[in-house]
């Protein structure tokens, strides 16, 4: 698996992008911003994104597709029929779809027509994996084929993934998408176990390792996306939100993510323009991380060895004491 220990964006690339942002917004990032080993975060400024209306396909989508076009190997001619539920998801003949997430399309742009204070506004929202701080999709993958890297990128290893789609089920936005007829399951028990490989944005983790920017960030003509150390990006998101009297999405959703949207329009209103459909997630504010409820019980499990030892010690002492008293009583008799 290609998992760089610490992904570093080259300082030059990072500064290029921040300089662009500064030029556009008339601001500069805090002086503490540096490329380095910190967890990375991306900021998507919806006040800047214009959906690339002048292009056939938004630049972020084109760039992402170009980078990932060889990611999925050739799908087998006859995809094994899973048993007993016969669900097959084959996008290989619909690779050109760009208006939703598919195994061949890791980012799409939602267009929201919103009326606020009597004013009609069009907001474009690029949607992709949020790269959550504690992603259930990765932590409870039964084969650890999905993993959160130190740099914050949540990456699926297509060589280990069986395509069971558990990651999609536990993701509040149902981001990962399945392609049947590829992957390791074909070599194990294709009819009974697994059903392909799950695909999603990996934050261009390989490019990050080479010191490059993610394709979508690099390609955005309006520099609506920036990437940098998490703390700096969070501070930048706060600043921008304050300046535009706007809103942030992704800071607390699903327990926190490494993707922060900043918008002049509230996400309640944006979410109202979205109908959750396969491959088209909604944007419900404050969506909870469901695993958070299991954390207290999990912490108790971590203390279980100590509980066991303490109980053994206490009971051992008690039974020794009992034996001692009995012996003393016997001696006294």
């Amino acid at each position: 698996m290609e998992s760089p220990k610490i992904s570093k964006i080259s300082r030059r690339s990072f500064l290029q992008i921040t300089a662009g942002v500064a030029a556009l917004t008339g601001m500069s990032l805090p002086t503490t911003v540096q490329a380095g080993s910190d967890t990375l975060s991306t900021l998507i400024d919806l006040s800047l994104c214009d959906g690339c209306v002048d292009r056939e396909t938004p630049a972020c989508i084109s760039s992402c597709r170009g980078i990932n076009k060889h990611k999925i190997p050739k799908v087998v001619d006859s995809i094994p029929e899973p048993w007993p539920r016969k669900t097959i998801e084959d996008w290989s003949k619909k690779q050109g779809v760009t208006n939703r997430l598919t195994p061949y399309n890791f980012i799409y742009v939602h267009k929201a027509e919103i009326e606020t204070a009597g004013r009609q506004q069009t907001i474009f929202i690029p949607r992709r994996c949020m790269h959550c701080d504690n992603p259930a999709c990765a932590t409870i993958c039964p084969f650890s084929a999905n993993h959160k890297n130190e740099n914050g990128a949540v990456v699926i290893n297509p060589k280990q993934c069986f395509g069971g789609a558990k990651c999609k089920d536990v993701c509040p936005w149902e981001i990962p998408q399945r392609q049947s007829g590829v992957g390791i399951y074909l070599h194990v028990l294709p009819g009974f176990m697994g059903n392909g490989v799950m695909y999603k944005c990996d934050l261009c983790n390989n490019r990050l390792a080479e010191g490059k920017l993610p394709g979508c960030v690099e390609a955005c003509p309006r520099k609506a996306m920036i990437i940098g150390p998490k703390k700096a990006i969070e501070a930048e998101a706060q600043t921008r939100a304050r300046q535009m009297k706007g809103y942030i999405y992704g800071k607390k959703e699903n327990g926190g993510t490494s993707t922060l949207y900043v918008s002049p329009v509230s996400f309640e209103l944006i979410n109202k323009t979205m109908t959750k459909k396969p491959g088209q997630p909604d944007m419900k504010p404050d969506v909870k991380r469901r695993m958070v409820g299991t954390d207290p019980l999990g912490k108790t499990v971590l203390s279980a060895p100590v509980l066991g030892l303490a109980a053994a010690g206490a009971l051992g002492w008690f039974s020794r004491r009992k034996k001692q008293v009995k012996t003393e009583e016997k001696d006294n008799d």
Binding site: V301, A304, P305, L307, G308, L309, A311, A312, G313, L315, G316
Partner: peptide
């Protein structure tokens, strides 16, 4: 876990 460790230790 607690009972397993208890068993081993006790």
């Amino acid at each position: 876990t607690a009972v397993g460790i208890f068993h081993l230790a006790y």
